[in-house]
Computed example of a mutant assay.
Amino acid sequence: MARYGKEHKLATRQRIIETAGRRFKRSGIDGSGVATLMADAGLTNGAFYAHFESKEDLIATAVSHQLREQGEQLAAVAPGRDGLEQIVRTYLSREHRDSPEEGCPSAALLDEITRCADPTKQAYTDSVLAFVDDMAARLAPHDPQSARTTILGVYALMVGTLQLSRALTDRQLADDLLEQGIRNALAALDAGQ
């Protein structure tokens, strides 16, 4: 039986993390068993423990990965206030609302993350704060720490708006809510400058 090299193991681990992140956001953490997660990655259930200590380990890793990717997308956005507006408009878009498996883990999983073990919550906290701090640096480049609470509030507003918009059956009302959320987030950013 041939042994796989380190690169193959890392690539396999990455595939599990990425497919698990999408599955968690689509079906929820509790609705995603290890067997389903591994099947999504095209692997057997038995291969799981070669890559992760537990499901909780995978949750923390996948959520952190998703938030890190979200943060990396900031690099492609214009600097300053214009970039923040672009982030708000993209986040509170119909496309983001209608594709939770491709979107923000906070909007898809926040209620479940609060019930996770402390290491998972700490990994989430660290990842969210890295994202928030990147946004704060756009709002207050000379003193990002002064804008951290403002950005946390805007982020919370965006997450809650997206969650509520996803839950509404009235599509026009859901669309109107996204538009109002954009206005509210931009007003909060302007008030925080």
Rank of each mutant, 00 (worst) to 15 (best):
S93D: 05
P79G: 13
E69Y: 02
S93Q: 03
R81P: 04
Q86H: 07
L92C: 02
R68W: 02
V88L: 07
P79K: 02
V77H: 04
R81M: 12
T90A: 13
E69D: 12
Q70F: 04
P100D: 08
R68E: 14
D82F: 01
E95Y: 10
G80T: 08
I87D: 03
T90W: 09
L92E: 04
Q66Y: 01
A76R: 11
R89E: 15
G83K: 02
L67V: 00
L67S: 00
V63Y: 00
A78T: 06
G80N: 06
I87A: 07
Y91Q: 08
S99I: 01
G71D: 05
Q86S: 11
E72N: 09
Q73L: 13
V77R: 12
A76W: 03
Q73I: 06
R97W: 04
V63K: 01
E95T: 12
Q86C: 05
A75L: 14
H96V: 14
G80F: 11
S93V: 03
Q66E: 15
V88C: 05
R94C: 05
G71V: 00
L84F: 10
E95S: 12
E69C: 07
D98C: 04
Y91E: 07
D82E: 14
G80R: 07
E95M: 06
A76N: 12
H65N: 10
Q86I: 11
P100I: 07
T90R: 14
A78Q: 14
Q70V: 00
L84S: 07
A76L: 15
V88Q: 02
R89S: 11
A76C: 01
